[in-house]
């Protein structure tokens, strides 16, 4: 975001303006639709990621290090 917004109004700094680079045939409705689509998809994936990581953490490691030491000592 910082890089993209900070560079405006340039697309390539000093070479090409954003107004020279955008597509004339992709409507703003299409842009909004895909933006919402990506936000929905990423929200879903973010949620899934959190749930899966939480489950993995709450399940804990399979063997504790102290057990391993005990096994080696035996």
């Amino acid at each position: 975001m910082t890089a993209e917004i900070g560079r405006q109004p340039w697309l390539i700094y000093g070479l090409m303006r954003t107004s020279e680079g955008y597509s004339h045939v992709v409507s703003s409705g299409n842009g909004l639709f895909t933006l919402i689509g990506f936000m929905g998809l990423y929200a879903l994936l973010g949620l899934l990621f959190t749930v899966l990581v939480y489950r993995e953490i709450s399940r804990g490691p399979e063997a504790r290090i102290s057990d391993l030491h005990a096994a080696i000592a035996d």
Binding site: S23, H24, V25, V26, N30, F33, T34, G37, L41
Partner: peptide, 12 residues
Amino acid sequence: SGFYLPLMIVLW
């Protein structure tokens, strides 16, 4: 840019 929407759908 012409195939914008179908390409986005392919990506999804």
